[in-house]
Amino acid sequence: MSKIGFWLQRIAQLLIVLLLVTFGVSLLLRLIPVDLATILLPVGTEEERDILRNELGFDKGPIGYYLQWLGNFVQGDFGKIYFSGGTEEVSDHLKNAMPRSLLLMVYTQVLALAIAIPLGVLSAYRAGRRADKIISNTLFALSSIPNFAIALLLVIFIGVKFAWLPTLGYAPISDGVWEHFKHMIMPVISLSLGLIATYTRLLRADMIAALREDYVTMAASKGLSDRRILWRHVFRPSSMTLLTSAALSMGGLIGGAIVIESIFATYGVGFEVFAAIAGRQYVALQSTVAVIALFYVFFNLVVDISSGFVDPRTRDRRVNA
């Protein structure tokens, strides 16, 4: 199959997944045993509800409703949030939440990779020795502690006991870089500890396998330094699984950090999901989940594309497959 054909097929697959996810959520909402218009307008008159039903397509049956929602969604109309004083646009909420989630995700990834890569290389280089055992066991224990537990412990000690950092809220970069980071440090640490363990483990396993390759022996016999062999000859081919895992976890961090975002009141996309559920804003829920799935699928595609750049061997393999 040609290269273009492969990518077209891959994109088509992802589009189908996206359509099915959004349709699934749409169907799920129709399963709610309560009239959606009554939930959205609890104090409105029956005429107002009828108008809303017609506007949102609740009266059209599951497929008609889905198609109407989809038509609005692709045009950037994500629906409204209804409350007793009026309505707010879901897209405005997401515009506010998205940068927070993206920054949280980027910082988390950078911190996790910055710590995991040296640790992974070191523990593979010293595999089975004491340094490796200490690193592996410590990370194993840390990764088993749920991120909300780490978050709460950070709040208790750093936020309350020593009062070094604010425990709630978010400050945009425009409020000052230090102010911004002060609010981000604790959420980022809570989210990245688990990732550090996962990344270190993946990198260690791949590097140990790569260190057994003949070309490493060859490089060593040519007299190259350990450092050069490790970083140039072993790290690069071993970073593939690591990068895949990192890219896939990006999708999960957008929207998946619900508990951390609500503990620290960061109000990112995950919190929007939670707020939509708590406020029974089912149209907002549907659009927000769709945006999250969109990001996930996007990062999946990024994995596919970037794998070809990092390890040129997979490019040919994919085309031949």
Partner: peptide
């Protein structure tokens, strides 16, 4: 595989949260 991918394309907790909230809705809210 498509069904699995659909399920996997939403973060676990978001999916669980959505399911719980929908399934646990009472007729009398």
């Amino acid at each position: 595989v498509t069904i699995f991918n659909v399920g996997l394309s939403v973060p676990n907790l978001v999916l669980a949260l959505a399911l719980v909230s929908v399934l646990a809705t009472n007729v009398d809210i």
